[in-house]
Simulated scan of single mutants.
Amino acid sequence: MEGASPPPQADDSDFLDAQLYLDEPGDAPHAAQEDAPRLAVKFLVPNVAAGSIIGKGGVNVSDIQAQSQARIQIGEPWPGTLGEFGAPPAHDRLLLITGTLDALLTALHAVLATFRSELAALAAVAAREDGAMALRMLVHARLCGTLIGRGGATIRSFKDASGAVFNISPPPGPGDPPERVVRLTGTPDQLLRAVALVLTKLSQNPDYPLLTDVSLGFGPPAAAPAEAWGGAAPPPGGGAGAFLPHAAAAAAAGVGTTSLVMAVPEDRVGVVIGRGGAVINQIKAVLGVRIRISRRGECLPGTNDRSCEISGPPESVALAQRLIQQKVEGVERE
């Protein structure tokens, strides 16, 4: 009707909340499936090399992100990081790059160019006198079998295809971080080809999203019990990832299926759900769990947190809780 006001438009959070209750397979919107998959890769870089990536006032990292459309995060200096193949612990920094494969490789190309332009950074990553550099990727130990292949066939084919040299650190021991160091040596072009091959192969493993920690830290120890992946005891004052008392007991029981309730801050529910329900539906589909988040305004008593109930096999529930907590903590660091 002429002159009539347009209907009110729902904001993103309204739409996302409406997607919470899509529990059946195939309910995720088609638009989310058409998006290019986002990957993540984590490197250990010497402190001086990390400084060259950041640049004065952060200008270098801002330019690289704008050029590549990838996200780059660099952790604080980390004393006692993984010593390389038995070497003493080094003062390295964690470099996390996330984005589509093309964006990620574009960002890495710019990072390597930055190393080559600064003498101190180049010296820190130089591997041989012929201009070769060394990159140290962190790959979860449970994904390394995919990278190595039967009898080492996959990694040999990657060496031949890229021209880079591959070396993988020994499996972690009890209580060690679960990542292994994949050391790549070669020219910048060889390194880019090697990283592309590795990420393409790893992303084909259905456990890749679960075992790729997108935080500026090492994952939980390889031998940690399932409860430790999210912390069975609630932190003071509640907060993201806190278990309610009955949930800790249910998780500890470890029988058949279990259910837990974790707290998610009201203002961070959207990132847990994802646009169009993409994040929460992926977690449900991959892990085979059911997830129910209370409706807006229905908060846990005495808090501004909404309840997130996860049910399913104990190990899958623990992994889902860990993934959700990572999503929330990622927002907290931004």
Rank of each mutant, 00 (worst) to 15 (best):
A153W: 04
K159H: 11
P206G: 02
P25R: 02
G175H: 11
A247L: 02
G231I: 10
G330N: 13
V198N: 12
L82W: 06
A36D: 14
T81G: 14
Q65G: 04
I53A: 11
R322P: 08
E332S: 14
I155R: 00
A251G: 08
P46V: 12
E179Y: 10
A222R: 15
K284D: 07
G239D: 06
V328H: 10
I273E: 07
A242V: 08
A103F: 03
T100K: 00
V269P: 13
V139H: 02
P301H: 13
D12V: 15
L184K: 02
I168H: 04
T98H: 05
L96H: 08
C308Y: 04
V41H: 04
F115T: 01
A153F: 05
I53P: 09
V181A: 07
T114Q: 12
R38C: 03
R156I: 01
G241K: 03
A153S: 13
F218A: 09
G302I: 03
T100Q: 04
P46Y: 15
S117R: 08
P188G: 02
Q67W: 05
Q19T: 15
V269L: 10
A223M: 11
A248I: 01
A232H: 06
E129P: 03
D189K: 12
M137P: 08
R136K: 14
V195R: 00
Q67D: 14
P77E: 04
R150H: 13
P235Y: 03
R306F: 03
F43G: 08
S5K: 15
G270W: 06
R150P: 04
Q326P: 10
R292A: 14
P88F: 02
Q326F: 14
R275K: 13
L199I: 00
V41R: 03
A318G: 03
R183K: 14
G145E: 04
R275S: 09
Q325I: 06
T258E: 11
